[in-house]
Amino acid sequence: MIIAERKPFAEIKAMLAPYKKILIVGCGTCVAVCLAGGEKEVGLLASQLRLALGLEDKRLEIGEITVERQCDLEFLRPLCDFTADYDAIVSMACGAGVQFLNQLCSLHPVFPAVNTTFIGVNNAVGHYTEACRACHNCYLGITGGICPVTMCPKGLLNGPCGGTVNGHCEVDPEKECAWSRIYHRLELEGRLDNLREILPLHPHNRTTTPGTVIHPAYKRRYGPNE
């Protein structure tokens, strides 16, 4: 899922200074799981803003709403009926949600309330680690289910660099070397022969942004992908 962190309160408050009536829009999927922008966090931000501005004798009218997914037109479109009365919109979704909302509500400024950090996993409550760089070319089948693009800070595809020390990374000695992990995992699975295969250059040309994917079944509707 997408992991995000809420922006510092002072930054959010400064962004909203010129406005009198705002709508805070939460997202009920990834950012709700990582406790950054779900329904609960919408309530917290609204309450914090009311208290902080109340102390300064300022008044800010705040609307609160949370949709299932801000990156999905099906859930986002009905929101357009609510936004007309507001001066500005604050989105607590990831960057994709903020931009989709911005595209749909073209008459209002849309502000982000979270910093989107990475695609990661939920290890335990409040503990998230990066797991995928969305690199367009998955190597996990060859590398024993450990991603060299993400787990190796240098993204090396063919074995460790010279900086690996006793199975630890030179960039962050606290972390295990990704290629050391890959070796031991493949050894455990009896698939060390995989390492004899030299992986070709990573297709960085495919990672040019912004990416587009059209499902093969919908090519006639939307046109070819490339």
Binding site: K40, G43, L44, S47, Q48, R50, L51, G54
Partner: peptide
Amino acid sequence: IDIIHILKGFE
């Protein structure tokens, strides 16, 4: 008790 209960109390 959640942080929101405390904030609502102050509000």
